[in-house]
Amino acid sequence: MIHIEGLTKRYGERRVLDGVDWVQAAGETTVLFGGSGCGKSTLLRCLNQLERADAGRIRIAGHDIDPAQAPAADVLRRLRCGVGMVFQQFHLFSHRTALENVMEGPLHVLGRLQGEVRQEALDLLSRVGLEGHADQFPHQLSGGQQQRVAIARALAMKPQVLLLDEPTSALDPQLREEVRRVLRGLAEEGMTMLVVTHDLRLARQIADRAAFLDGGRILESGPAEQVFGNPVHERTQQFLEEVHS
């Protein structure tokens, strides 16, 4: 489902990604973690082409991406329809209600009909536990509620892969659990997810595999219990200790 080879991205002189290789099967949930500035978010943004890598190959949700050339508009559209994204800061459209946020993609990108889209969007909102909040605007919702709307908005496109960029880190600790619960449900249903997070509780709950990113490379990866419980690499141990303390 996701196949990355030698992905490299430079900002000026600095190599943010320095030859990342990663393979992830359909139905798998993996967690990427690492210190700030290690390239985690950049990696996600390269996967759905919000940023273009400098070198390497990406194959995701059936699309081949060659960083050397700008993708054609319709390739880009199909890629992004197949790869959903959830942001740390939610980025809901603040002039639209929760329901309208969820309906926006299917209506205006996929060109589907109002009636069926509306019903699906209402179902998605109840699936993330927000039945009664369809007509509220983002600023009327708590952070946890906003993030759940954002997840519903991404799911409305029926993506094959979901990319999540620190989905719980902008939330107060007591609001994180409601988002974790939703993501746990998705993992159990077999959604393919690549999650960047420092939230180790979330990681333990949903991750099949985990990878530690450091200096633009994957330093260590393996089954989640092993990477979190018994990391091999010294820097991984160090990082996990710092996060725990």
Partner: peptide, 9 residues
Amino acid sequence: DAGLALGMT
């Protein structure tokens, strides 16, 4: 970014 990520032009 959120709009682009939904596949909008």
